[in-house]
């Protein structure tokens, strides 16, 4: 379970999250939507301890332990995973070398090469990724869709328990999106206690991965929470919030 309590965050002296609160129980799928620049990606970066963001007050509690004192890698080894909006290209470091080191680091012992190859082959086939991508430099020369699939490949290999997907659906064609969605669903079935925080602008991914809660973020705070219907309302009407409130009054919960 992840609890964010009264979290206030600054970046370059600008407040981007303001007394933000959110609780994600094991097995739940939460979606955050909102216009550009309201702090959606900031939230995921802060949970992952990006050094560019400064926590002013509040706390982030994961499985009853504050993770604020932990470094990025310690948080990752606790089972927190962030699939990034713009995955970096790292020249010279192959996916295979990177993932072998990451899996060894997570398990606290050198990974058995045979089991590693078996696992990565299975994950790669399931994501319909070509063989050679495993031996190429991380994301180097990958298309937008391939980069996003590579993020999911890392998720399948590292088996995290709390997964943040930051615009995993952007730059992905319809076929690739289905593959990504199916893989997330399969992972969810295999790991029923895993929980998800999905940042998105559209309902494309949500057609495959059904959310339990949809939140609207504005000015660093959640201003509205609802179900999948709220995401559809937003897709139809945009973030014209007053209009959304009126039209969503019939089913969705409205929060201040």
């Amino acid at each position: 379970m992840l609890e964010i309590k009264d979290l206030t965050v600054k970046v370059e002296n600008k407040e981007v999250l303001n007394k933000f609160n959110l609780t994600i129980n094991d097995g739940e799928v939460h979606v955050i939507m909102g216009p550009n620049g309201v702090g959606k990606s900031t939230l995921t970066k802060v949970i992952m301890n990006d050094p560019n963001y400064e926590v002013i007050s509040g706390d982030i509690i994961y499985n009853k332990e504050s993770i604020l004192p932990l470094t990025t890698d310690e948080r990752a080894r606790k089972g927190i995973f962030l699939a990034m909006q713009n995955p970096l290209e790292i020249d010279g470091v192959t996916n295979a070398d990177f993932l072998r080191t990451a899996v060894s680091s997570k398990d606290g012992k050198n990974v058995n090469l045979y089991s590693f190859i078996k696992k990565i082959d299975k994950a790669k086939d399931s994501l319909k990724m070509p063989d050679e991508m495993v031996h190429r430099s991380i994301n180097k020369g990958f298309s937008g869709g391939e980069k996003k699939k590579n993020e999911i490949l890392q998720m399948l290999m590292l088996e995290p328990s709390f997964i943040m997907l930051d615009e995993i659906d952007s730059g992905v064609d319809v076929d690739a999106l289905k593959v990504v969605g199916d893989n997330i669903n399969d992972y969810k079935k295999e790991h029923p206690s895993s929980s998800y925080l999905i940042i998105t602008h559209y309902t494309h991914l949500l057609k495959y991965v059904k959310p339990d809660f949809v939140h609207v973020l504005k000015e660093g705070k959640i201003v509205k929470t609802g179900s999948y219907d709220l995401a559809r309302e937003i897709e139809n009407n945009g973030f014209n919030f007053e209009k959304v409130v009126i039209e969503a009054n019939d089913g969705s919960e409205v929060s201040e």
Binding site: M48, P51, A76, L82, M84, P87, A102
Partner: peptide, 8 residues
């Protein structure tokens, strides 16, 4: 940050 976010 990218590499450390995977546990390295």
């Amino acid at each position: 940050f990218y590499l450390q976010s995977r546990g390295l």
